[in-house]
Design a protein around this nucleic acid. Structure first.
Lengths: 206, 206
DNA sequence: GTCTATACAAAGATAGAC
DNA sequence: GTCTATCTTTGTATAGAC
């Protein structure tokens, strides 16, 4: 079968194009990236991009779906795990997002920019409101274990504290005497423990 | 003086171009906006855009500076007001940002995208670390009035809780049974009171 | 100051050779 | 599958009439 003669090699053109597109689209967005940039980054000819993916738009879609999944998949799994407590879920959401951010620092801003353009593509509120996590939370409020809190507020707080620091990082990372990469990683790893503590403290307020 | 014959009218072309550019650049960014879009939005000919501003880039710079000032000016003023306590400063930062966000909801994401492209243009860490607010905070820690907390963490928490919800709004605002505009405004106004409470709660943790 | 027309440049997509 | 060459479309900037 001559068709699959390239399937075994690791760095074929198709793969290199996707990798280049992932890097560029994720960090700069659709409009700022030119097909010629992708071709150069991948070390191939522009014509090949169209040969494999038909258009810039189709290629972008692949990268967008990838990023959306990276951003939301772990999240909804954690929220609906019947075996963990709501407190454990909070810890897991935080560490899950911080790990993701340290590995793929461009993904959050990419996803948020995309979500602004196409809000209809992202359906998080429903996922959150119908989740196992929400039920556990409402039970804890009913039994007076924790003080009443608006569920949207709580969810916003958890993701804000986890994700925003990575988005705002360029603002805090100025020239001299500033937040180095290593220090930032250290800080975010500390926050894995601290954010759940802070969140639990807010749940005690009457 | 024939030169200023248009200065008095309210809706001259120059002004209309800036307004159109503000709207489009702030919501979509530099690359996604075409000069023809701006001209159409302003109801003028493309040629006029070049006549008044020489290029798309120069026009963009005007809008960028506007947005940066909108985002940072109030912030550094509040941080350095000698007459307010650190607790009052926290309340003011929160309500200042939430007010700004409700009035100009596109500005935060615009600024963060810009800051990522040109981190050297934004010098916030220095402003925060050398501020009156920081000194007051360190005094409060020394006198055991509050538990020790990393200053960067505290600052991150305050701005995360205030700003992120507006950036993440499209994610939570799905089709049916969802966060309407009015409900969002209400929620954010509630958060003006709640965020300082939450922050103060975290300052009590040993 | 404002418009029309147009030049000039960049970007996306395709045909056809190898 | 990959390249060169080229076409089309789109975007930016300018010249010149009114």
């Amino acid at each position: 079968m001559t068709k699959s003669k390239q399937k075994n090699t690791e760095d074929n053109a198709e793969k290199k194009i996707v990798e280049a597109a992932r890097k560029l689209f994720t960090s700069k967005g659709y409009d700022a990236v030119k097909t010629r940039d992708i071709a150069e980054e991948a070390g191939i000819n522009i014509a090949l991009l169209n040969y494999y993916f038909r258009s810039k738009e189709k290629l972008f879609e692949i990268i967008m779906v990838e990023n959306m999944q990276k951003f939301f998949n772990g999240f909804s799994q954690i929220l609906n795990d019947e075996k963990t407590t709501y407190r454990k879920k909070i810890e897991l959401i935080v560490s899950n997002y911080i790990d993701m951010i340290l590995k793929a620092p461009d993904t959050p801003l990419f996803v948020l920019n995309q979500a602004k353009l196409y809000p209809e593509c992202v359906q998080v509120r429903k996922i959150v409101m119908n989740s196992c996590f929400m039920k556990q939370l409402q039970d804890a409020i009913k039994s007076k274990e924790i003080a009443p809190i608006n569920e949207i507020n709580l969810m916003l707080n958890i993701v804000s504290l986890s994700i925003f620091p990575c988005i705002a990082r360029p603002i805090f990372q100025t020239g001299e005497g500033s937040l180095t990469h290593d220090r930032f990683v250290e800080l975010m790893n500390e926050r894995k423990k601290l954010i759940p503590k802070w969140i639990f403290a807010t749940l005690k307020i009457k």
